[in-house]
Simulated assay, not measured.
Amino acid sequence: MNCEQIKQRISIRDVLESYGLLPVKENRRTATYFALDRDEKTPSLSVDFVKNTAFDFGTGKSYDVISIVQVKNRCNVSEALIYLQRFDVLKPLDNNIESKDLSSYDISKIIDIQHPALLQYLESRKVVNSKIFAKEAHYIINKRKYFGIAFRNNSGGYEIRSKYSKICLGPKDVTLIKSEESQNTEVVVFEGFFDYLSYKVIEKNISSSETDYLILNSTSMLFLARDILCSYEKLSLFLDNDSAGKTAIENISLFHNNIEDCSQFYKDYEDLNKWLCR
Rank of each mutant, 00 (worst) to 15 (best):
M1H: 04
E4I: 12
Q5K: 10
K7A: 10
R13W: 03
L16S: 05
Y19I: 09
V24Y: 02
E26N: 07
E26P: 04
R29Y: 08
A31F: 00
D39S: 14
K41N: 13
T42Y: 02
S44H: 08
D48N: 00
F49S: 08
A54H: 04
F55T: 13
K61E: 10
K61H: 02
V65W: 03
V65S: 12
I68R: 00
L81E: 00
Y83S: 10
F87E: 05
F87C: 13
F87Q: 04
D88A: 13
V89H: 00
K91M: 13
K91C: 12
L93D: 10
E98C: 12
E98Y: 12
S99K: 09
S103C: 13
S104F: 15
I110C: 07
P116A: 13
Q120M: 10
Y121T: 07
Y121Q: 10
L122W: 02
E123T: 11
S124A: 14
R125K: 05
K126I: 08
K126R: 15
K126V: 06
V127H: 02
V128F: 02
N129T: 14
S130P: 01
I132D: 06
I132V: 14
F133K: 14
Y139R: 04
R144P: 06
I149R: 04
R152N: 09
G156W: 04
G156M: 11
Y158G: 08
R161Y: 05
Y164S: 07
I167S: 00
C168M: 11
K172T: 11
L176N: 03
S198F: 04
Y199V: 09
V201R: 06
V201K: 07
E203S: 14
K204G: 13
K204I: 10
N205V: 12
S208P: 04
S209D: 14
E210G: 06
E210K: 12
D212L: 12
L216W: 01
L222H: 03
L222S: 01
F223A: 08
A225K: 01
I228V: 15
S236C: 14
L237N: 02
F238D: 01
D240A: 11
D242Q: 06
G245E: 07
A248T: 15
I249A: 08
E250G: 05
L254C: 14
L254R: 15
N258Y: 03
N258M: 11
S263V: 07
S263I: 09
K267S: 04
E270Q: 10
W275H: 09
C277V: 15
C277E: 05
